[in-house]
Nucleic acid binder design. Structure first.
Lengths: 343, 343
DNA sequence: TAAAAATCTTTACGCGCGATAAAAATGGAC
DNA sequence: GTCCATTTTTATCGCGCGTAAAGATTTTTA
């Protein structure tokens, strides 16, 4: 490592003995120059640690190597799990991912898209907040920037959607619980923040009807993204009001279930599938913490890996197709039922 | 909103009737131009939605408005809680925060610093991975970029450190548990990833000795950041080996405690402070999920708000001081003991 | 109302790199 | 040793904006 500081590509080209345009070509694609040239450049690179100015690069390139990743709520380990995988894969593809969280705030979501627009990203992976998202603003953004939606679908918006098949989630748990005990009631928020919640409720009702059973939906009140607390308070209220007619509950999502289990514990309601238990609780998502609830939570898990991988692959396909698909693509991955102690 | 697209500041200056240098001045500081001029620019801004090219700006400004935020492990809601607050405050100050997670990987941590360096940030808020961090690389980075460390201190590195006072955490819980029952054993990982863990253990031993009690440390094996699973398996092993001599445990951190509580539940060991309970468990951090464990977790919580605010304020003070302090600053905030059902 | 101060316009240059066209050099096959 | 294809060099422009200097204009001060 020499002590002379390289200020720009011109100087680096000089010390490496290669012309600047060739060096520039190298940085855009190391394989586009002759092997011997590449070696000389890389030798110089080892000696003087030079890196092209990222701002100058992005200013001049028509398409940057930036990729935006937007999640609705970062305090949710569920999204982190996916974002982390996506991030790594983007880096492996030679792109620079930037992660943003809307923190459940639709206005912030729009701000993020605005910021993202000015980054001129090659593409964006967006998990919208959902119900309260500003549809028209997102639609406008998607017209400007190649965007793949994931997790929450907004009909017709974006070039593609990658997510989970909500019916597969609910049908597996309903079938399992019904087969091994009583059919479950469905436990959800009155005004869900996320469109998946509605799909899951509808799937529950359809599934119950298909089995010739009467669906029973328990709606708890609460707004925002503090799902655990909403589940806990809703759980207490459910017991107090005697709303529960069965000994089995299927929660709309794991975070709600974590709160419900907390309420059950506080009330001394024993949850599980052993004979001494008063209640069985199952849920959806495969939340990283679901293994550590008391009892451990039976849940229909997202196929995290497939969703992440497919999202990234679809995005890069989109980028290579010039940012547009002929028809909007949708891909839904089935759930994987994880049997644990709670049901 | 007119339909004519503004391509650059030149064109925007034309439609606003103001010269380009003045418009440039406005975007750097709206108050640096005459009120009447500002109004004319903002009128044009409302009509044609123009935004200066971020890459061109950053290329030419000596100091960008970028701020880097680096956390060691994003799947930990604890860091998200802090990062979220910091992020918002940076935006409010007119800066552009970028959030990165090292995902527990020291090599990735170095990569992030490398990426960050090329973003020429005005300053960086860094929570190092800790023990396994590449000290010399971080040190090198801090020489180039004004950096404030938070959460994990690396002695002498960075211009300042903002964190929590580990002794305050442990002393409060030890005092409380001893006063209301038996003195606790200390439950931790054998090779903690984080320097705070060592400080907490030392504080525990010192506190016990101060009270004239014999300290008892239980070290469970496990590497990496899957603290919950390490706590769970370690908990089982602790019971099997009969390592536990007291009826009270203080965990090094909440995530470990979540795993331990899970093990207790699986073994039918009732945790809590009521007479029918076999064990009391307390912990440290104030993890967002600690409210929802079974039983709810008594924990010494970080003062999230103070740590976040002080970190941001220190960083901006640093930036305004030209990136250097005369002497390295350190600030430790005391814990707030949250009494819940587990102890 | 004149002078002083503040602000704006004009002109011009530089930042570091991408992109391109034409000229020159290189290397491999025969 | 010649020829041709490939690669590199040379030269030059443009991206969008920061910034500086000099002169013109407006506002403030006395």
């Amino acid at each position: 490592m020499s002590e002379t500081k390289i200020r720009n590509m011109e100087e680096f080209a000089a010390v490496s003995g290669i012309s600047r345009p060739t060096v520039s070509k190298y940085f855009n694609d190391p394989d586009s120059v002759r092997a011997s040239t590449r070696q000389r450049i890389e030798a110089a690179l080892a000696q003087y640690d030079y890196r092209p100015n990222i701002f100058a690069i992005n200013q001049n390139r028509k398409l940057t190597k930036n990729v935006g990743i937007v999640v609705p709520f970062m305090a949710d380990p569920f999204f982190i799990e996916i974002a982390r995988t996506i991030e790594q894969r983007c880096i492996a593809m030679g792109y620079r991912p930037s992660l943003f969280s809307a923190h459940g705030d639709p206005a912030l979501e729009v701000d993020i898209l605005d910021t993202l627009r000015s980054l001129k990203p090659a593409g964006v992976l967006l998990a919208p907040i959902g119900r309260s998202s500003d549809r028209s603003e997102i639609e406008k953004f998607c017209r400007d920037v190649p965007t793949v939606l994931f997790d929450s679908n907004l009909n017709g918006i974006g070039e593609a959607f990658i997510g989970s098949d909500n019916f597969s989630f609910v049908s597996q748990t309903v079938e399992y619980m019904t087969r091994t005990g009583e059919p479950p009631s469905f436990f959800e928020m009155k005004t869900p923040a996320n469109p998946n919640a509605n799909k899951r409720r509808d799937a529950y009702i359809k599934m119950m009807e298909r089995l010739g059973l009467e669906p029973h939906v328990i709606k708890v009140k609460g707004e925002g993204w503090a799902f655990e607390e909403i589940g806990r308070q809703g759980g207490h209220k459910m017991f107090e009001d005697g709303q529960l007619k069965t000994n089995a509950i299927l929660c709309s999502n794991d975070r709600l279930a974590i709160g419900l289990l907390s309420a059950c514990y506080e009330r001394g309601v024993k949850v599980g599938r052993t004979p001494d238990c008063a209640l069985r609780v199952a849920s959806n998502d495969g939340h990283p913490f679901s293994r550590f609830t008391c009892p451990s939570l039976t849940t229909a898990s997202h196929d995290y890996e497939s969703v992440s991988n497919q999202s990234v692959e679809t995005l890069f396909e989109l980028i290579e197709s010039g940012g547009r698909f002929d028809t909007r693509r949708e891909r839904f991955f089935p759930a994987r039922l994880i049997l644990r102690d709670s049901a």
